[in-house]
Design a protein around this nucleic acid. Sequence first.
DNA 1: CCTCAAGGTTAACGCTCACTAACCCGGCTG
DNA 2: CAGCCGGGTTAGTGAGCGTTAACCTTGAGG
Lengths: 230, 230
Amino acid sequence: MGTRTAADSAAPSRREQILREAARLFAERGFHGVGVDEIGAAVGISGPGLYRHFAGKDAMLAELLVGISERLYDGGRRRSEESAAAGLEPAAALDALIDGHIDFALDDRELITLHDRELDRLRDAERKQVRKLQRQYVELWVEAVRALYPDLTELEARVSVHTVFGLLNSTPHLGGPSSMPDRETTAALLHRLARGALSAAAPGAAPGGSGATAGSFSVAPDGPEVALGS
Amino acid sequence: MGTRTAADSAAPSRREQILREAARLFAERGFHGVGVDEIGAAVGISGPGLYRHFAGKDAMLAELLVGISERLYDGGRRRSEESAAAGLEPAAALDALIDGHIDFALDDRELITLHDRELDRLRDAERKQVRKLQRQYVELWVEAVRALYPDLTELEARVSVHTVFGLLNSTPHLGGPSSMPDRETTAALLHRLARGALSAAAPGAAPGGSGATAGSFSVAPDGPEVALGS
DNA sequence: CCTCAAGGTTAACGCTCACTAACCCGGCTG
DNA sequence: CAGCCGGGTTAGTGAGCGTTAACCTTGAGG
C-alpha cells in the first residue's frame, strides 16, 4: 500500500488534486475518453508525471470508486448507528439515510456518475470490493425501509431501494444550477420524492407502516389527492 | 441516409441483428470497451465485414441512440394524444405515460443503459437531435404531471420528472431475473413507486430541510391507488 | 456463359495512448 | 560539500483498434 493514508485534508497534496481532476474528467467524457496527458495537464504537470503518484490510470479509477463506496457505506452506517443509539423511530432513521445520500448526490455529482458508469473497468479484486460495499449499503437501507414498512417483502424492499437510488442519483441529469432550485429546496424536494416513492411501495395501497410509528403521516394541505378510482 | 426504413420487422435482416448485438455489447462494456471484431463475431461475420452495413462504429451508436429517443418520444406522444382524445382524466393520462416508460425500461434495459451513458460519444448533429427528442419527451411528462398536480411549479415538475426517469431507468441495476419478481409484479411495483414519488413532490408543510424532525416531511397517506393493469 | 452486385474474407496501415526509459534539478541531511 | 531522493521532464515503444484495400464467392439475369 501507499505509505500515505488519506488523512491529510488540509493540504490538497497533489495526489488528492489529481484524484479530483481525474474524477471530473472521467465523469465528463468517460474513463476511456480521457488520456493521461489530459489529467496531467489539469493539475499542471504533464503526462507521465502522474506515475510518480499512481501505478497507472486504472489505479486512479480504482481508488476513486473504492473511496466512493466506502464513504457512502461508512456514512450510512454511522447514521444508522446514531439513529439506533438515540432510539429514534424508524421514520427518522430512514430520513437520516435519505438525507445522507442526498448530501452526497448534490455535493459529488461526478462521483455518482462514475460510480455506476465505470464499475466494470475495474479489476476483479477491486470490483468485488466495491460490489460488497454496495451490497452492504443497500442492506442498511433495506433494513431501515422494512422497519418502517413491515408489510414489504424482502424483494419488494430491495427493488424499491434500488429504484430510489436511481431517483436520488439522477442529479447529474438535472443540468446546471440554472435548471435547479437552490440547494436547500432541491434537497427537500428530493427527500419528498424518495419518501413518497417508498411509502407507495407496499402493494396494499395503504402505505404507512402499521408499525409503531404510523403517526407521522399528515400532510397534503392542498393535496391534489386525485380520487383515481376511474 | 439509409434507403431502408425500419419497416421490415419480419426478417431480422442482418442490419438489425448487428444493431441488437451492438446494443448488448455497448451496454455491457461501454462503447470504447467493445471492438468491431467483437461485434462482428457476435453476428457470425468477422471484423470489417460490418462496413458493408454501416459507415463506421459511430454510425451504429448514432442509429441506436436516435432510434431509442424517437421510440420513447413517439410512444409517449401517441399515448398522450390517445388520452386526450379519449377525454381521460389527468391521472389516467399520467398512468399511460408511466406504463409506456415501464414497458420500455423492462423490455429494453440495454437501450436504457446506452441512452444515458454514451450520449456524449455522438457527433454534434446527432447529439443535438437526441437532446431535442429528450426535451420533447420530458415536456410531455411535465405537462401531464402539472395537469394532475397544478400546485407544482414548472421547475419542481421538471426536476421531479427527471428523478422519476432515474427511478424507472434503474432497472438495469436490479440484476438478473433472480433478484426481481416476475414482470407483471415488477411493473406494478415500479408504477406505484413512480406515482408515489410524484404525488409527494408538492411542497407540503415545512421545508425545514434537513433538519429537525423528520416527521414533517411525510407523505400523503392514501397515495396513488394505482389503477393499473385494466 | 459472362457479368455484376452483394456480402464476405484477410492483410495491412496509421493513429492513439498507456506506460517506460533516461535524464534533470532543487532541497534536505550528514 | 556530498549525496540522496521526491518529483518533474521529454523521447520512445509497443499494443490495440478503427478503418481501408484488395481479393474472393455466390446467385440472379440477359
